[in-house]
Nucleic acid binder design. Structure first.
Lengths: 203, 203
DNA sequence: GTCTATACTTCGATAGAC
DNA sequence: GTCTATCGAAGTATAGAC
């Protein structure tokens, strides 16, 4: 369902192997060099294909960006649901959030979203679904840990945790790590105190 | 002091009025449309000047970006020092951090820094100076409020606050505000409890 | 269904004119 | 000291050949 079908140009099949190669190349380029480096020519070069193929499989560059984003978002949402279904605890939530993979991915997309309407809508939509799913998990975990919502509202705990993991990722990308160790230890100790049933060893 | 002076091309005076117009246009463009929109041609058009003037006053586009960044960073560092000198408290720190002006500015520059070495170094440098200055202020404020560093280490409080204000700004830029009100109220209430000497009314 | 030839726009940067 | 004429490279996108 194309939003604007002003043109009747033909588009390649969604299950094409070539298309997937282009998506992979675009994602890699995005992570390595930022969204400004994701151009039709460079994506094609990375995939070992001709530049025009990008526009055969994706009507516009924004379409390409959206597909790259959706793949990752769907996957990480699924991973979250799986992990929480297996063990709904603050510890699991923290572990999932503190995972820095995909942090620079987010940075790039938020920056992109800042000035491309179609992309902003897509990201905001996913972010809201993600927040809702996480809020449910935090609420359940806090209740299980014997904390009433009066002491710390679940949504507050969630926003704080989200902010923390975000700033850690962002600063690490900049090469800044002052205070990170201390903060991570502090949070993990706090969680371990609330949930003594498991050690917080991995990171 | 040019880092690479491979060329002997002449550069315009630093106090030129034209140069300032270009800087203003670049900053405006950056905020409105993101760093990818900051091209020599568009900057010049916004300033009502010829595109070549950008390269007369700035050797490369990165030089232009750096100047735009420095102006803002210097100003906000100075504003911080002034405010803290007048009143060194958690309340003042929170008020300064929660100010969302300049949030999208930061987003763009972090994204830029993610893949331009010269810019990353500059931003990381400022960020570290800023963190050091803030850490000093948090330590002093916590001590004044009668909190020992064992209860919550100043650096932990600082990183948490930085993360929180960052996520609030980022999500607001995306048009997402779920949980923001509740979290802001929670933090302001906590600070007011620690520092009853003043109300936390403004935002 | 898959890919290529090609149009046309915009980019950063420099050498040289005033 | 200030600005302009101009270059070569890179950008998105489309129409049409296989």
């Amino acid at each position: 369902m194309p939003i604007t079908s002003t043109s009747s140009r033909r588009i390649g099949a969604a299950d094409s192997k070539t298309r997937e190669r282009l998506l992979n190349a675009a994602e890699q380029l995005l992570l390595e060099e930022g969204y400004a480096a994701v151009t039709s020519r460079r994506v094609a070069a990375k995939a070992g294909l001709k530049p025009q193929l990008v526009h055969y499989y994706f009507r516009t560059m924004d379409d390409l960006f959206l597909e790259v984003y959706r793949r990752r978002a769907d996957e990480s949402l699924a991973r979250f649901e799986r992990a929480i279904a297996a063990d709904c605890s603050l510890h699991t939530l923290w572990r999932l959030n503190a995972d820095l993979r995909g942090a620079s991915f987010s940075i790039e997309f938020v920056a992109l979203a800042n000035h491309r309407k179609a992309i902003r809508a897509e990201i905001a939509g996913y972010a809201e679904r993600f927040r809702a799913a996480q809020l449910e998990a935090v609420s359940a975990a806090l209740t299980a840990d014997g904390l009433s919502a009066d002491q710390i509202p679940p949504v507050v705990a969630l926003v704080l945790m989200t902010g923390l993991t975000q700033v850690l990722a962002l600063e690490k990308a900049l090469g800044m790590t002052a205070g990170h160790e201390a903060t991570i230890e502090y949070v993990e100790r706090a969680i371990a105190q609330l949930e003594p049933r498991r050690a917080t060893s991995e990171r």
